[in-house]
Nucleic acid binder design. Structure first.
Lengths: 333, 333
DNA sequence: TTGAAAGCGTTACCAC
DNA sequence: GTGGTAACGCTTTCAA
């Protein structure tokens, strides 16, 4: 690690025998004198000059950085997003800043507030929940924000959403078509946005199939593998089912495990389907069907919307809904 | 999104009726006049002032940002690292910049070069391979760098490594103790650093157990689920085994699938163990044993080493090796 | 203790 | 076209 003085535009100017203005112009392509550009480039190479992005930012008022904030990058859905967002931004020269806010809503608001520090040009935000304070902060952000997730219609911010309600409904209908009549549902916490939406979707799916709703069939867990195991144990201890819908893949795979431990065959005795269509679905045994909520698509679209804003687009806020789709594997055949 | 003029330190000074120097001092705790601090804080609230980190960076020559560069955040090992690095840095006020470089070594070098732009105070780097140019760049970086992975001893940079050779050996010995005598190995590409190390570890493990090496027992695949499936199919078509070591969890879970499809019981007929101890190991069925290479630990340690450097520590480069450990689950009982 | 002023490294305006 | 120079918003030295 060298402690040498890093050359500035002044050194370049001196070596090239021109003014710093000319160097700046040459470097930014604001001159038609190609001989000048040559000279400057030579000098740049000679002194090993690299522009300071910080100084540039101060002057130009943009940073070349975009933040992505979500609860936990360990969550496969957010991971899928970041894998799309990063290359999308990177291709046009933006760096990505990652904020894992944790389950703390305060931290999420902290991210929104910190936007005023102007260290990023924009933000992609996946809020856990949308509180009054979120709305207030979003109404008046210093930089463009795109929200992935449900957002009240009057919040003037680009918004990309999944339709996990429809997705859960699709899952139920798929299970019904596969022959299931008693469909258990292991939901996530019902006070979360996805937990609530999937609960609704489950009920609508039942309605659509003409199946009765029975609370006995519903369990609530956290969105983790162990949650799925516990949920499945309680569910199966209480009643019998011929299918299980897990509110995400980890829950569903947890259920898969419990079923196998109990000696129930999947899919012959019980069909199982998850949501999010992540790696664990494909690597479960048997390979597990899942409802894709288009996380990767949502991430990419969000990034693109943000880039449009940064390009100066001032059209009204966009509202994009990514439709769910079914990935059918052996667990529901 | 507001286009309002954002208040600067000058507005605060005016409202507080003091000079900007005093505001700066008050805000940075470089004054003992508490009445002054009061006044400034009031003014700050009144005008809604938030300091510009860009301007601060230009002056103070540090950015409050640290970059983490690796091949693909989708890789569970890197994911585990980032989940430790981010909170570690965040707790002391650093923001995390993510660089997924992809399989392209050029991009990796690009990250190293871009360090001269001074947009970060430090870097945690997981190189795919370490080339001459890496070494050259690392010898003379403008900011502290910590490398996670193998590094030549003479490169003067903090270094955190796993010991996947020892880890693979441990896996073999564990399988041996569990009763296995014909231990198949599905490695990753042997021209990668981990692929090579694990191959060596496998052979040493066999030696340690007094088992003969047999090339028939070895397959090479990529580090993915499908790779594991293909590798296992080839292996089992060619010869019989009573255990399989996968060079990572995805490979091993792929093998698990193939074994079940072939009606072989795990662990009774064939024991299976993976490496990295990721989610897919725990959610596999049966829950799969795995060699943990301490990815989370490596990430945390790397972050801590970097923070020490940023604190001004100038002691000689540190070389930390995180020992592997065995997580035993049902697949090898 | 406080304020004036000099930078930090750029970009861009404005004369020439 | 080119070069001086004034910002950008802050921290910090130096006098008072």
């Amino acid at each position: 690690m060298s402690q040498n003085h890093r050359p500035t535009i002044h050194e370049v100017a001196k070596v090239a025998g021109v003014s710093i203005s000319s160097v700046s112009r040459a470097l930014n392509g604001n001159t038609s004198n190609t001989e000048m550009v040559e000279r400057v480039n030579d000098a740049v190479r000679q002194v090993g000059y690299v522009p300071s992005v910080v100084a540039q930012s101060l002057k130009t008022r943009h940073t070349g950085q975009i933040a992505f904030a979500m609860e936990d990058i360990g969550n496969a859905a957010y991971l899928a997003m970041v894998r799309e967002i990063q290359p999308t931004l990177r291709d046009v020269g933006y760096r990505l800043l990652l904020h894992s806010t944790g389950a703390d809503v305060e931290d999420e608001l902290g991210v929104l507030d910190s936007l005023s520090q102007n260290y990023v040009d924009g933000l992609v935000l996946c809020p856990l929940r949308v509180t009054e304070r979120h709305v207030a902060a979003l109404r008046d952000t210093p930089v463009p924000v795109v929200v992935i997730g449900l957002l009240p219609d009057d919040v003037p911010v680009d918004n990309v959403r999944a339709d996990s309600r429809v997705g859960a409904g699709m899952a139920v209908e798929h299970l019904y078509e596969a022959g299931a009549r008693r469909i258990g549902f292991i939901d996530g916490p019902v006070d979360t946005v996805p937990g609530h939406a999937r609960y609704e979707g489950y009920r609508r799916g039942l309605d659509a199939c003409g199946l009765p709703f029975d609370e006995e069939l519903v369990e609530f867990a956290d969105f983790q593998f162990e949650g799925g195991r516990h949920g499945a144990r309680s569910l199966l201890a209480r009643t019998d089912v011929d299918a299980i819908l897990g509110a995400n893949d980890l829950i569903a795979v947890g259920a898969l495990h419990v079923l196998r431990e109990l000696g129930r065959s999947v899919p012959d005795d019980v069909r199982v389907i998850g949501m999010d269509d992540t790696t664990v679905a494909a690597t479960g045994f048997p390979p597990m069907s899942s409802v894709s909520l288009g996380s990767a698509d949502r991430g990419r679209i969000a990034a693109q919307l943000l880039l449009r804003r940064l390009d100066g687009d001032t059209s009204p806020p966009e509202r994009v809904t990514v439709p769910p789709s079914l990935t059918i594997r052996e667990s529901t055949l």
